[in-house]
Amino acid sequence: MKNSAQLVIKIIGYKLCMLIMLFAVIGCKEGTSKDKTTKTETENVVKFKDIFWNVKAIQPNGKSLDIKIFDNAGNGFDVKAVQNSEQDQLLDVKAFMEGERLPVKILVSKKQFSPVVAISQKGNTYKLKAVTPEGEQHQIIGVRRFGNVVIMKAVTQKGKFYAVKALSPSGKSNDIKGIKINPQDKEMSLRGSQIYAHVKAMHPAPNEDNFVMPKRNITKPPYKPNFKRIIWNIKAVTPDGKNLDIKAFDAEGNMLDVKATQDSKQHSLMNIRAFEGEAELAVKIMDTEDEHAPVKAIGADGTIYDVKAITEDNATLEIKGISREGNIVNVKAVTENGDLYAVKAFSPDGKLNAVKGIKIFERKIEMRVKGNPVYAHLKAISQ
């Protein structure tokens, strides 16, 4: 009996050990699963930490001058370009005054030289100025328009121009310029001010530094480019390097050419249009609740045209805004399998621009065209 009792005790002890080991294994698995979930949740909520680029006027000797705004008491406040995502192709420029980030704009002016100002929530305007070590101030101005771009400079008392640049902490450089969406002089009204252009920091366009600038601040005539238009081809680029045509389609399936139009010497920011006879249709990224935003052409009466790439076997691929990074919406041709093809603009002489959606405002809907909500403006921009 004693031996039988000992045997029973051993069996029970063995089973208890097995149960304890089983619970331990399950506990480890649950712990691992929780760790993975926590890590994923953390990754999803991580935000990009703003990188502040210094905004400077560059003298001919290579030395830089701080650019600031000043209140009525003469206190100076910093002006910075703000990188709030991985992309640095198109950055906002802000003035930092007493905890407020003020938008920086070029104002409408009858004179050749347009003032560049920061605008407060109350509608107060503060001119941007470059400051020498001796305390001398040089006004920052919009000097001359080239298509969608307004070249900006610091101007000395003697009329000399200094380039205006954004310099990153890691040593990269962007051009500071005004950009226009509206072909008219007036872009919009903002807190009582008439806006001529939005000030942004963009990837360098080497040819723009060599543009001839007017020397006199005279009354400027209405803008009229003296330039023979250059048409750039818009293509979807496959992984093996083949370029696919991109067309707009009407309701009957008729195809319209889609091109980038260079209407001035600059080609850092060009419009993209669909051509229907003599008419030119704006091409935009439309607002949607879907995962990807459709690219469409919009007729003068508000009619929507699909924009698609055409493969070698005449299949069509949707062109869509895939993801947003700050002011940039990445645009791709999307295959049935979900593969993504880059979309590029090619000039007749072999230059290459990226085709991107650009956003001027932080809000979701940029504007409405004939009642259609626009998420971003499709442009061909410097890479």
Rank of each mutant, 00 (worst) to 15 (best):
I310G: 08
D290K: 12
M286C: 06
N327M: 00
V295H: 03
I319Y: 05
E289N: 11
D301V: 07
T311R: 05
E280K: 07
S323C: 10
E325N: 11
K332T: 06
E312G: 08
D287A: 05
D301C: 06
Y305T: 14
L317Q: 03
T316A: 04
I322V: 15
I298F: 14
T316I: 02
V329W: 08
E276Y: 10
K308Y: 02
V283D: 03
G299C: 09
N327R: 04
A333L: 00
I328P: 04
H292M: 14
T288M: 04
I304R: 03
P294N: 00
K296G: 05
K284P: 06
V334D: 02
E291Q: 08
Y305N: 11
A279V: 14
I310K: 13
A279W: 08
T288W: 05
G326E: 05
E325M: 11
N330D: 14
K320L: 14
E312I: 12
A315D: 15
P294T: 00
D313G: 06
V295L: 02
K284Q: 09
I298S: 09
A300P: 07
V329H: 12
I285W: 00
Y305F: 15
T288A: 03
E318A: 14
D313Q: 15
V307N: 01
N314C: 09
N330I: 11
D301P: 07
G321R: 05
I328Y: 02
L281Q: 04
E318P: 07
P294M: 01
A333N: 01
D301M: 05
A300R: 09
K332Y: 13
K284E: 12
L281A: 05
A297S: 05
E278C: 05
V283N: 03
K332N: 14
I328V: 04
N327P: 01
D306G: 04
A309W: 06
D313W: 10
N327W: 01
I322K: 11
A282R: 10
A293K: 03
G277W: 04
R324P: 11
D287N: 13
D287R: 07
I285A: 00
H292L: 13
Y305S: 14
M286D: 03
D306Y: 00
E325W: 10
G299D: 06
L317H: 01
A315L: 15
I322N: 12
E278K: 05
N327T: 00
A279G: 09
I322L: 15
N327S: 00
A333E: 00
K308E: 01
M286K: 12
Y305C: 12
A300I: 09
K308C: 09
V334G: 00
A300F: 08
K320F: 06
E291T: 11
E312S: 14
T316V: 05
I285M: 03
T316M: 04
T303S: 12
I298P: 13
K320V: 15
D287F: 02
T316C: 05
N330E: 10
D313C: 08
E318D: 13
A279K: 14
I322T: 14
D301T: 12
L281C: 07
T303P: 07
V329K: 14
N314E: 10
T316N: 05
D290Q: 08
P294Y: 01
I298C: 09
G299H: 11
A309H: 06
R324K: 15
I328A: 02
A297Q: 01
A297Y: 03
S323A: 13
R324N: 15
V307S: 02
V331H: 13
A293C: 03
